[in-house]
Write a protein that binds this DNA or RNA. Sequence first.
DNA 1: TGCCAGGCCCTCTTTAGGGCCTT
Length: 204
Amino acid sequence: MTRIAVIDFETTGMSPLYGDRPTEVAIVMTEGGRVVDQFQSLMNPHRRIPGFIAQLTGITDAMVRAAPPVATVMAEAARFVGAAPLVAHNASFDRKFWQAELAALGLDAAQPFACTVLLARRLYPQAPNHKLSTLAHYLGLAREGRAHRALSDALVTAAVLGRIQADLTERHGLPDAGHAVLSGLQQCSRAAVPGWLQRHAHAA
DNA sequence: TGCCAGGCCCTCTTTAGGGCCTT
């Protein structure tokens, strides 16, 4: 059975290139579309969290001050993921933090990434938009916990992924939708996505 | 303190521009 790790970061900003760092990570391990394990931790970025981000996420400087350092948490996160492929909502964002922090630790970050935004835009073009919360509401998926907290967002993303896998199987008759998601969308490649979709659309 | 990005994709496009999505 294909194991897929769904990841979500909360951070101090948009880009590790400008010194932004993670404040929280959650990873939900799925197998056949079901959650089988999870990892979550706040972490101390040793950098102030901008006010609007603290308001957005509910994560404050006081909360991360007592948390373990980023390096400790990311080393644990890397062990948890192992060689499993990763999925995130807008994966280009989470991927750059994953790669930057693992590179700082001298750890390999070669796991393939797939993106539920790109998948959802193709499978659910009629949705009002493809923000995670809107998509969850549109698909009738329940949320546990506060939006913009890592574990809550990772669980919702895992639920979206599960629905995508189920819809691929039902609509397009894919015998192993999990494998198709990974093989077709690795790296969120601009070239791979439409080609993959067209192949399966024609086959359906 | 506030600023900083970038890949994808659509279209009034392709010798480009701008919206979406993440914090």
